[in-house]
Amino acid sequence: MEFLIITGLSGSGKSQAMKAMEDIGYYCMDNLPPQLLPKFAELCYQSKSNIQKVAVVVDIRGGIFFDDLFESLNTLKIQGFKYRILFLDTADSELVKRYKELRRPHPLSPTGRIIDGISKERELFREVKRRADYIIDTTNLTIGMLKREIETIFLEGKESKKLTILVVSFGFKHGILLDADLVFDVRFLPNPYYIPELKNFTGNDDNVRDYVLKWEQTKIFIEKLKDMLDFLIPYYIKEGKTQLVIGIGCTGGVHRSVSIANVIYKELKEKGNRIILRHRDLK
């Protein structure tokens, strides 16, 4: 039997993850107090039903019972019940945004600031996240993307990637990419904006892409950038980073940055990374 524990920060998408698990054949239980995990696992393993895949959601809604989670996990191990943990993480800024959109208080800070509750919860989950078998950062994932990621891991049996890479093109004249971990300025490349027949096209169009990529300095830059990312990404994963935002900037965010971002996205995707492409300033 497959026994999966779904947990993570409040607002990170656990309910959507549970729905996705149900869609691929898991029997799901929401908001199970951690203290009841061993008993529930025992019932599932001893059941004569045809249930072969079980997922339970355990989170901060369990209140004081949450303190019993580690004891329950140790009990499961002692009793010989095999389990895996799926941890959903999200950036603080996105969590605050989600809470404000729903106009709901954080369960750990019902009358105070949302960010204070998030900080308390993140500290409580620190060890749980470290023990997790799978980590999905939902900061920039749509519901469809999250469902697809779950299908990839639990239906297709592919290896889980603990790092989500977001490649974003942008224009410096519209402001720098504030949440970027790495920013690369491609304004040194010839600008298609000044070519009349290219001005009204974008880096998603073949004529602009071909123009940007034909220069020797472009080819050298791309190769050096690919080498740098190949070097850095394993170390980011080793340090426990769950999201890496790579910004590619030009003047307006329409021609050069879009072309280069598309190339880097394709390269990283072909290497099996969990990756998202976004063109911030492309209307």
Score class of each variant (00 low, 15 high):
K283P: 14
R278L: 02
I24W: 05
N31K: 05
G171N: 07
F231D: 11
R126K: 14
K53Y: 07
E197N: 15
G11S: 04
F221W: 00
I114F: 10
Y83M: 11
E101P: 05
A132G: 00
K19S: 03
N74I: 01
I237C: 05
N204Q: 15
F184V: 15
V183E: 01
H279W: 07
S169V: 00
E123K: 15
E151T: 11
H255E: 10
I114A: 06
A41H: 13
K226M: 11
V186R: 09
F66D: 04
K77T: 12
P110S: 08
K283M: 15
K269Y: 08
I222S: 07
V168I: 15
K214T: 02
A41W: 13
N31I: 01
K241G: 02
I275Y: 09
I115M: 10
T202Q: 02
E71W: 08
E159N: 02
C28N: 05
H279Q: 09
K97A: 07
E22I: 10
R131T: 01
T152I: 12
R113L: 12
I118F: 06
K283W: 10
E94P: 00
L88G: 00
L4Y: 06
P190D: 08
S12K: 06
P190R: 03
D89H: 05
R130V: 02
V245G: 07
D59F: 00
N273L: 01
Y99S: 04
I114W: 13
L36T: 05
G171M: 07
D185L: 07
K77L: 02
G272W: 08
E149A: 15
L37Y: 01
R274P: 08
K120H: 07
V263N: 11
P107W: 11
Q46M: 13
P38Y: 10
I276D: 01
N207V: 14
V58Q: 03
L108N: 10
I275E: 09
K224L: 15
K14N: 03
K82E: 09
S119M: 09
L282D: 04
M1W: 09
T90P: 02
V58I: 11
D116N: 13
E151I: 11
Q35T: 03
